[in-house]
Every structure is written in C-alpha cells, then in structure tokens.
Simulated assay, not measured.
Amino acid sequence: MELDELKLAWQTLDRRLQQSNELSLHLLRESRIDKARASLRPLFWGQVVQLVVGFVLTVTFARFWIAHTDSLALLVSGLLMHAWSVGLIVSAVMELLLLTRIDYARPVLTIQKSLLHLRLWRTRVAPWLGLPFWLLWMPLMAIAFEWLFGAPIDDSVYYVGVPIGIAGLLATLWWYRWTHQPQRRHVGQALDEGNAGRGLARAQAALDEIVRFERE
C-alpha cells in the first residue's frame, strides 16, 4: 500500500512539474513574441516612411522630366531618378508585405522562417538599391542645378564622374563577393548583420530563447 501511494505521489508530482513547465513555456513564449513584435515595429514604420518618400520623389521627378522633354540631358536625368524612386517604393512595399505576413500565432519555427525571408530580403536585395548611386549622383546633380540655378551642369562632371562611378560600382561588387567568400565568412556576416538591422536581430534572438527553453 505504501508503494502504491508513493507511485501516486510521484505521478502527481510529475504531472504538476509538467504543468509548471508548460505554464513557464507559455509565459516565456508570450513575452518573447511581444518582444519580437516590438523589435520589428521601428522597421515597419521606417518602411512606411520610405514608401511615402518614394511616392513624393516619384511624383517630383515625373513632373520634372515631363517639364523638360526639350532637353535630352534633363529628360534622361529625370527618367533615371524617376525609375530609382519607383524602385524605392517597390522595396518598401515588399518589405512591408514580409512584415505584415508574419503570423505571431503560428509555431515558433514558422515565425522564424518568416523572419528568415525578411532577413534575406534586407541582406540580399534591398542593399542593392543604393548601388546605382555611384552613377545616379550625376543626374541628381543635373536636376538640382536646374532647380536652383536654371542652368545645366558642366559636361566635365560627366567626363570625370562616369569613369569614377563605374570604377566604384565594380569595386563595390568585388568587395561584396570578396567579403562573402567562405574564408572571410565573419566579415560577410558582419555586413549582413548591419544590413539586417538591430531590430530584426533582437526579434530573432527573442525567438531563439523560446527554442532553447523548449529543448531544455
């Protein structure tokens, strides 16, 4: 009889311990999910700002090139900056879609996959939006000179700027490839972390805490 009572007490203790672990996991999940959501909030609003800025720039540059169809240089400059502004909008929309499609009610693994897609976008696609500015600074300067002074920039700017821009473009591509080679993985990871942003890193760390607790 004493042995049966001991087994019953042991089973009761084990059941209570399991319930306690489940409650602790639930509380940890709720707090870390809230932390992950809060960490991504600045990123969301940052993309909203980028979307608004992209829209304003698109309208502005569209009005510029429409008003300067009589000048090939200004027309091309306006069209190039218009196209880049549209790219700014597309990038913001894509990132906002990735952010809004994260379902925090789903299993942690599913949320982690959503964050991985967001990370890949921010580290492999979005950074290239700044690459064209090795050359786009010249059309932008041409537009600025027309707005401010009503005069075109000197042709020497293109003669000097285009070779420098192409060289900078190629150097940036080489640098990216060089830093992402296996033997320099730590350098590439550091660059990717910077492009991903601290908010995304904090969100991933919060979810990792849940996974570690589940494995213990």
Results as ranks from 00 to 15, higher is better:
1 M>A: 13
2 E>G: 03
7 K>V: 13
10 W>H: 13
13 L>A: 13
14 D>Q: 15
14 D>T: 14
16 R>P: 03
16 R>K: 13
17 L>N: 12
23 L>R: 11
27 L>C: 01
27 L>E: 14
29 R>M: 04
29 R>A: 11
29 R>W: 08
32 R>Q: 15
33 I>R: 15
35 K>S: 14
38 A>R: 11
39 S>E: 07
40 L>D: 10
42 P>V: 02
46 G>N: 07
47 Q>D: 15
48 V>H: 01
48 V>Q: 05
51 L>H: 04
52 V>H: 10
52 V>L: 14
58 T>Y: 09
59 V>T: 12
59 V>H: 06
60 T>W: 14
60 T>P: 03
63 R>C: 03
64 F>L: 06
70 D>C: 01
71 S>P: 11
72 L>R: 10
72 L>Y: 04
76 V>E: 05
80 L>P: 04
81 M>I: 00
82 H>R: 00
83 A>H: 03
84 W>D: 11
84 W>N: 12
84 W>F: 11
85 S>V: 05
86 V>E: 00
87 G>R: 03
91 S>Y: 06
92 A>P: 10
92 A>Y: 08
93 V>D: 04
100 T>N: 14
103 D>R: 05
104 Y>P: 06
104 Y>K: 01
105 A>C: 01
107 P>E: 03
111 I>H: 11
111 I>R: 09
113 K>L: 08
113 K>S: 14
121 W>R: 00
121 W>L: 02
121 W>V: 00
124 R>S: 04
125 V>S: 07
126 A>F: 06
126 A>Q: 12
128 W>I: 03
129 L>N: 14
129 L>P: 02
132 P>A: 02
132 P>L: 02
133 F>H: 05
133 F>G: 02
133 F>V: 00
134 W>C: 10
135 L>D: 02
140 L>K: 00
140 L>G: 05
143 I>L: 06
146 E>F: 00
149 F>T: 05
150 G>S: 04
158 Y>H: 03
164 I>R: 09
165 G>S: 05
166 I>T: 10
170 L>V: 15
171 A>K: 02
172 T>L: 09
174 W>I: 07
175 W>C: 08
177 R>E: 12
178 W>M: 01
179 T>Q: 13
180 H>Q: 11
180 H>P: 03
181 Q>A: 12
187 V>H: 13
188 G>M: 09
188 G>A: 07
189 Q>W: 04
191 L>F: 14
193 E>C: 13
194 G>F: 09
197 G>M: 05
197 G>A: 03
199 G>M: 08
199 G>L: 10
199 G>V: 04
200 L>I: 05
201 A>T: 13
204 Q>V: 12
206 A>C: 05
210 I>Y: 03
213 F>E: 13
215 R>H: 15
